[in-house]
Design a protein around this nucleic acid. Sequence first.
DNA 1: GAGTCTTCGCTTTTT
DNA 2: GCGAAGACTC
Length: 636
Amino acid sequence: MQHLHGMNQAQREAILTTEGPLLVLAGAGAGKTRVIAHRVLQIINRGCKPEQVLAITFTNKAAFEMRSRISKLLAEDRGVRGGAYEVSAPPFVSTFHSLGLTIIKEHARLLGYKRAPSIYDRADSLRAIKEALKKTDTQNIEPRAALGYISRQKSDGITAEDFAATAENPHERSISVIWLLYEQTLRQSTALDFDDLIGVAVRLLVDNQEVRLSYQRRWRYIHVDEYQDTNSTQAQLTELLVGPQQNICAVGDIDQTIYGWRGARIANILGFEKTYSSAKIILLEENYRSTKTIIAAANDVIAKNIFRREKILYTNNAEGEALSLYQAFDETDEATFIVRTIKELLEDGASPRQCAVLYRANFQSRAIEERFLDSEIPYQVVGTRFFERKEIKDALSYVRAALGGTMADLARIANMPPRGIGKVTLIKLLAGREKELTGAVGQKVSNLHTLLARIAKAAAELPPSKLMRFVITESGLEALLKKDTIEEGERLENLRELVSLAARYDALPPQEGLELFLESAALASDQDELKDDADAVRLMTVHASKGLEFPYIFIAGLEEGLFPYDREEDDASDKEEERRLMYVALTRAQRKIYLSYASYRTIYGSKNATIPSQFLSDISEPLITGETGEKTVYLD
DNA sequence: GAGTCTTCGCTTTTT
DNA sequence: GCGAAGACTC
């Protein structure tokens, strides 16, 4: 049990409880990933084959981290024990979505797919919803709202047909019509949206006992990280995979549930003992990350929530400095304060990567970024969704269209760059009425087909990075962006980055490498940082900061309406989620927290007076020291 | 079908 | 107060 050295009592218990259902309620900074990794090692040391262990996470980044933690631990252990067990396949570590996709692909035939289904991202889904809305001339329905609504229904395990059967009021009936059309589009394109990756896998396992049992035999021990963020179908998928031995270990923190708006159900973690009746529950309450002051502030904020399970975080770390609060005049003043303070920290010997600036909403990054640009300080905005950029999507669509992808892919690239294929031609092309296209237009279309055929040929022969290079040049995207003087640099730079990302799959056989590359692009999230190594200050939303830690944390925009964010239709549970979000923000810090708010903030181009966030008054007096911006004036 | 004008929605968080 | 999508014109 050498590997248990340095663990506290609760951690040891969690690691040694390998059999039966286990719920680990781990506070922020309580060493949760470490516990999972050691528990996996313990299970393997007790005789289980590594590949029979499954660990599920939410982001690719978390999966990557877990995988490397586990493999490092196994390698160390092998060294100590002198190869006591056989080297075999590693434990299966996957995100929920790629796990769903794996299950679907392994039974594609059974599910009636002739080829591996492609994945619709949010933008694809939104376009399909817009088309459906056009077809039905439905009034008063916003595409985004409709998609959000449908997505939440799907994540609750409800199908379009179920919904159609139960729709009561006119609004629900309109949604229902759109939803059915949307599903039709997905089927026609052999495509699945994010919710389907879980939903289709669940239905397969429910309907087919043989398949279900095969997975239950394959994975004898299951771990689920961030269990509080699971939605209904994800919890159901987990339940279906857990065999009769009930070897499931769920790890999570109720106080860090920040994805309720996306369908996460706290009820899953609160009701764990009901689902798994003999469950053992272990609380990890000792924090190894932050100072006593930071923990006290975080506890002050979260204590006001009612919908939780009492857990009191404590630490044996030093007392630490008080949080500091800066009252800025406006967002520019706030940004100046942040950059100035970071400069001072750097002069005192801190490095840029030790600092992070957190905010509630992405738009806040702009004002802050402008100030960073003026300074010499390296910074990086996390969450500019790389794979959602236009040029990246265009390039990938070329590849997918060449390989017979969806109509969405073809529509995307048909006239990008402009080649004389307009609306009318495109409609005919998509409807398979190509015979009607003759003369000059016919020539243009046949040129496009030739291009796609060349790409398809290249796809079969070249490694992914060479293929992407080929696509970027031959499609004319490169030439187009070179003409574009304004953003030229950045967009071309992004395409170059895409080529180097593709190179990660060059070692595999071309087709397999390409498939995995396209898959990773579809399932990538903006939390999966591309360049992890840069020594730069990180700017990101609080959501994106979950799971990370930094010595110095800045939390900007602490104003009522912004943080906590409020919408008219908010209810009490949304308010509690905002509070949990603040708790997450505070618990990212190791040494010192800088809070700030602007007395005036520009929203939609006009300056508005603000009220300081209620979260500021929740933190007890002695934990905060204040400072006021020079320009502060009170206009009444 | 392409170029120019106008409106609209954005700015909550995302696999 | 800006950029993208849609409308309008040639």
